[in-house]
Design a protein around this nucleic acid. Structure first.
Ligand SMILES: [Zn+2]
Ligand SMILES: [Zn+2]
Length: 734
DNA sequence: AGATGCGGGTATC
DNA sequence: GATACCCGCATCT
């Protein structure tokens, strides 16, 4: 049996060298470059070296590696001198910068089964983890002891087929189940891809709480193998059914011959005016016309090419001719027709227009593959399993608890950021002036980017792998018990704007998205102030369900790798507090821990220089649609059309995509004045989603881009034009 | 058939 | 307003 087994050890899988939270990268002179600047590097080879040399000439310690922390949403992204090698299994909060030369990066590939997620941001591709397919009985290979870890199909439809299929282990009676990913505050781990100026930026959020699936190549090979086996089975079935049909047709033909000899009437079951007997009668009589049997055979054999699912043998030797029309259509032809047709049958084999006369849609060989469709709607919820210490416990409950206990020992911290002992980490903390983090029941001062790594949790994780399954007992809605309540990861998350999930609003980036200051340009604090501003990290529980607001603030030292969540188990849903709590978890402490949330990038303010905001004249008169204006604000180097920017055409107000229907009206209006006092382009964007997402920025941008003088002149011109039009209309009417 | 990306839309908070 | 997710479509392999 060929199926994928893999060894999985939670204690080691998340700590694979620098894969874990690797944010380290070599920087050139300027630690950041605006995404609007020139490409940081070209190919990894010569230009990379050149960049290094430039840095060496300007800085004494230019060769010293610096650690930079960026976010996928930053308006300023680091300028790397060396691209990262592709990481097939990124885990933890990590970031990489890949070269566009990397095919895997271009394809946004990953060892994890990542599916596309609509974040309504065409510039940042978001993917979420689908988890892994496991055996419902958690069987192990008899020889190696490895578990079944199949790769979930990315396609929803195909994934539905997978669920419930028999375990690939022939000796196992179990079936495949989806072990969903909850590695990111209970939600699937997310990957973000962004193509900027010749580099591909990758960011992962969350730690997978499940084994690795089989690699894609293995899954594809397995699929092909299964397909070929299925094809062979179908071929065999088709051949057998054809043999049966042939025997049946011979019997019926003989019977019909007897009938036609005694009856002169012509009875046809074809619909009126649609009788096709004249076309089929030739073959209908062919069985009895031995002299024409050869071409009938040929026609029958050839007809197989029109029946892709029939899998009939293609040669006349292997499949002698038989007349399927007698099965499909009970036609009876008159002797005169037979005579006429006898002439047509004189055609040579090769010149006869062979038609796909036979449609075997009713043939058993076209029977749907019930083995593939029977699993629709199957979930891995609410079922009992014979497991070691969780007998009679629904598997998901058991899984959650188990995974929680494991994650307890696996730190959900971004180790490259938060783990102590590294020089660069200390620098990072000093730069941010973060000395401790506190969680309040009443909220914290909101910080930019303060919730990037903690998704908003309005919903329970989708156990059904986004297949519409439920999460019974955990959803807050309709549940009077606070045990099931889901809290935001942070009480401040409502004021933050994780931008990778938003359409072009996300591209606002940098200080512009800081909740500590408004979008008013003039009220923007100075970059230095932003850089030196003391910030507090934010802490959230690493796992759902989030605790109810804590009564006491919890201090957390940044050097604490993991701090157990002080919430007592009573705050947890009773269902997750199993009668057999996972080992290594003290019963008095929640099986989760506090997590220092990723905070703002302190360098952001420093590197957001005013020059980066300058807009060229071409930008100002760019005729593209409004959101692209802002794109150029970010990226004046017009990127080559990629999957992130497939709209090279000018703005077309008549285009359906630019219609004014619904909430898209505002953002679709091209901004006519995209600069403010300082000739800085005001972001004009909007949500492309049809939902209730942010839409009102265009008006804000337009209003904020008008100085009092321009407002006066504009209103004056409006009044003037109005006056002229009224005057003209009156004059013309007279 | 499935992978992949895009995007409209909904549910929920 | 923000987020996760569903679903259909298009394109490509
Ligand atoms: Zn099994
Ligand atoms: Zn995962």
């Amino acid at each position: 049996m060929c199926f994928f087994y893999s060894s999985f050890d939670f204690s080691t899988d998340h700590f694979e060298g620098d894969l874990y939270g690797s944010v380290k990268m070599t920087l050139t002179d300027n630690s950041k470059y605006p995404v609007s600047s020139q490409p940081p590097l070209g190919p990894v080879g010569s230009q990379a070296n050149a960049a290094v040399s430039v840095a060496a000439g300007t800085h004494a310690n230019a060769n010293k590696e610096a650690v930079h922390h960026w976010d996928i949403n930053d308006s300023m992204l680091p300028m790397v001198s060396r691209f990262d090698a592709f990481q097939e299994w990124p885990n933890g909060h990590c970031r990489f910068v890949y070269s566009v030369e990397l095919d895997e990066a271009r394809r946004h590939a990953s060892g994890w089964a990542m599916r596309n997620t609509n974040n309504h941001n065409v510039h940042i591709l978001k993917k979420s983890c689908l988890g892994v397919l496991v055996c419902s009985l958690d069987c192990s290979a008899p020889d190696t002891g490895d578990k079944v870890h199949l790769r979930p199909a990315i396609c929803d439809k195909a994934r539905r087929k997978q669920i419930g299929k028999p375990c690939p282990n022939s000796k196992c009676a179990g079936h495949l189940e989806l072990l969903s990913c909850r590695g990111h505050c209970g939600y699937p781990v997310t990957h973000f891809w962004r193509h900027v100026s010749g580099a591909i930026y990758f960011q992962a959020k969350g730690v997978h709480d499940h084994p690795r699936p089989e690699v894609k190549a293995s899954a594809e090979a397995r699929r092909q193998h299964q397909n070929s086996k299925q094809q062979k089975r179908l071929q065999a079935r088709a051949y057998q059914s054809k043999r049966r049909g042939r025997q049946l047709s011979a019997e019926r033909t003989a019977k019909r011959q007897r009938v036609s000899q005694t009856s002169s009437a012509v009875l046809c079951s074809c619909p009126p005016f649609e009788c096709t007997c004249s076309q089929r009668a030739n073959s209908a009589s062919s069985v009895t016309s031995g002299q024409f049997q050869s071409w009938v055979e040929a026609a029958t054999d050839n007809s197989d090419s029109y029946m892709p699912n029939s899998y009939m043998p293609a040669t006349s030797e292997s499949m002698p001719a038989y007349n399927q029309n007698t099965v499909m259509n009970e036609c009876r032809v008159s002797p005169s027709m037979k005579t006429e047709m006898s002439d047509s049958k004189q055609l040579p084999v090769g010149s006869y227009p062979i038609q796909p006369r036979f449609k075997v849609t009713h043939s058993p060989i076209r029977t749907p593959l019930t083995s593939l469709s029977r699993s629709v709607g199957h979930t891995n919820l609410n079922r009992n399993f014979d497991l070691d210490y969780s007998d009679k416990i629904p598997v998901e409950e058991w899984t959650i608890t188990k995974r929680r206990s494991q994650c307890e020992f696996e730190s959900h911290f971004d180790r490259s950021v938060y783990s102590p002992g590294k020089q660069q980490d200390s620098m990072f903390y000093r730069n941010r002036q973060v000395t401790y983090s506190t969680i309040y029941s009443g909220g914290l001062p909101s910080l930019p980017y303060d919730s990037y790594n903690t998704p908003q949790q309005h919903r329970p994780p989708s156990d059904g792998f986004n297949l519409g399954t439920s999460w019974p007992g955990r959803h807050p809605r309709g549940s009077p018990s606070m045990e099931y309540s889901w809290e935001h990861c942070s009480s401040t998350s409502s004021s933050s704007k994780p931008m990778e999930n938003r359409d072009l609003t996300g591209r606002q980036g940098g200080y512009r998205d800081s909740s500590s200051w408004s979008s008013d340009h003039e009220s923007r604090p100075s970059p230095i102030a932003a850089a030196t501003r003391t910030t507090l990290g934010d802490v959230c529980c690493s796992f759902p369900p989030k605790h109810t607001p804590l009564r006491e603030p919890i201090k957390m030292d940044i050097h604490d790798d993991v701090k157990p969540c002080p919430a007592v188990l009573d705050n947890y849903p009773s269902k997750t507090r199993l009668s057999n709590p996972p080992d290594r978890v003290p019963s008095s402490v929640s099986p989760c821990f506090l997590e220092l949330k990723s905070s703002t990038n302190v360098l952001k303010g420093v590197s957001d220089s005013e020059t980066n905001l300058n807009m060229t004249d071409s930008d100002r008169h760019d005729s593209r649609k409004s959101d692209y204006h802002w794109l150029r604000f970010q990226e004046p180097i017009t990127p080559t059309p990629t999957s992130f920017d497939r709209d090279p055409f000018p703005f077309d107000p008549m285009h359906t995509n630019n219609s004014t229907k619904g909430p898209r009206a505002e953002m679709q209006i091209p901004c006519m004045q995209n600069c403010d006092y300082d000739a800085n382009l005001i972001p004009v964007y909007g949500d492309q989603a049809g939902s209730s997402t942010t839409n009102g920025y265009l008006s804000v941008a337009i209003c904020s881009s008008l100085s009092p003088a321009s407002l006066f002149s504009l209103s004056l011109s409006l009044y003037l034009s109005l006056f002229i039009s009224i005057y003209l209309s009156i004059y013309l009417s007279i």
